[in-house]
């Protein structure tokens, strides 16, 4: 075989440094090659075992060729031109590009390349390390797909809720019961909102309580600042969300009619946390504290009661409770809801 460069023979590296280098290169799982930019077409003059394993070529098929033989039909030429720039400017570059093995299969190659100078500061080699990042690419693509899918589902869900709202309104108006349809709609839409922001990570199997709380209550505080949220990233089972969403909706509706949200200055504090109930079961607690509204004189009567009756029944089915204390400074309510029965 003709001499293709300084690595053709076993004496390529001299001394202890050379020995260490060769041993390290032989053992590392990082595919490494060196090219000689002083030769015509910058051929590969050295590659290690990992490089052979990665590409499927033997070193005899690699040495003497320009690195571009690893490119193929779907290699992004923009990335290739970044490599070309780096070679021209003798600078360091990190690019990810699709490369092809000897058997035609492709892999994502995270290529790091940079110049190596000799003791006189003359450019001697280009160093290239390559790492197969196909799995990372696959995971990223899957995550992108999952996110795109979640957004599509979320978009469709919103549309479905918008159409349901329209049907309820149209029916209510045509049957001369717009008040009834308005109430149905408010509850349906509160339910829709409680699920809305949670779709993105719904695949985790649990839902973040705070996101649902904020989404349900957002329309009742259009300017912001009237409802104060106190809670952390607590998560719970999806089936808890409907009950909590509807309960918060009733509390907010009541507050807008009679409570702290009925004037211009009152505020509501909403706090959520995990707690143990008296049977030592995990329990989700949501506290609702109104202040600064018109003075409260006992529980309001009339139709408003209906809303709380629905909620009481709903929570009862789920072993939950809604305690209401009509204090003078405003309604103080607590929702208790068992979660994580398994412990």
């Amino acid at each position: 075989m003709e001499n293709t460069g300084p690595f053709a023979g076993p004496d390529a590296f001299s001394g202890a440094t050379g020995l260490l280098f060769e041993q390290a290169m032989a053992q590392t799982r990082m595919a490494v090659c060196l090219t000689d930019p002083r030769q015509k077409d910058d051929p590969i003059v050295f590659c290690n075992r990992a490089f052979e394993n990665l590409t499927g070529y033997g070193s005899d098929e690699i040495i003497g060729r320009n690195c571009r033989f690893l490119q193929g039909p779907h290699t992004d030429q923009k990335q290739v031109s970044k490599i070309r720039e780096a070679l021209k400017n003798q600078s360091v570059a990190v690019v990810e590009l699709l490369n092809y093995r000897k058997d035609g299969s492709s892999f994502w190659n995270a290529l790091h390349l940079g110049p190596i100078y000799d003791e006189n500061g003359e450019l001697k080699y280009f160093f290239g390390s390559q790492w197969d990042v196909s799995e990372i690419h696959l995971a990223q693509a899957e995550e992108r797909n999952a996110k795109a899918m979640a957004r599509e589902v979320s978009h469709r869900l919103k549309n479905v809720f918008a159409v349901i709202g329209a049907i309820v309104n149209i029916t209510g108006r045509s049957m001369d019961a717009p008040e009834v349809s308005r109430k149905i709609n408010q509850r349906v839409q509160a339910l829709g909102r409680s699920y809305e922001p949670t779709l993105d990570d719904a695949f985790l199997g649990t839902i973040e309580v705070g996101q649902a709380v904020r989404a349900v209550l957002a329309p009742y505080d259009p300017e912001g600042g009237r409802i104060i949220y106190l809670g952390n990233g607590l998560r719970t089972e999806p089936n808890a969300i409907s009950a909590i969403g509807l309960t918060l909706h009733e509390l907010a509706t009541n507050s807008i009619k009679y409570g702290a949200l009925s004037n211009d200055t009152g505020t509501v504090e909403v706090e959520w946390r995990q707690d143990n109930d008296r049977h030592h079961r995990g329990s989700l607690v949501v506290c609702w504290r109104e202040r600064g509204g018109p003075p409260v004189d006992g529980a309001p009567d009339e139709d408003n009661g209906t809303g709380f009756r629905i909620v009481d029944t709903l929570l009862d089915h789920l072993d939950g409770t809604l305690e209401r204390k009509w204090e003078a400074e405003g309604l103080q309510a607590e929702i208790h809801f068992p979660i994580g029965r398994a412990g």
């Binding site: 957004r151 919103k158 918008a162 309104n169």
Partner: peptide, 25 residues
């Protein structure tokens, strides 16, 4: 619109107040 996530660029171009779907009519 109910598609706030995906239409960001378009919404910026149009530059008009947005009411998120579903909002009562």
């Amino acid at each position: 619109t109910g598609d706030l996530d995906r239409s960001g660029e378009l919404l910026r171009r149009i530059n008009a107040p947005v009411v998120a779907k579903p909002t009562p009519s």
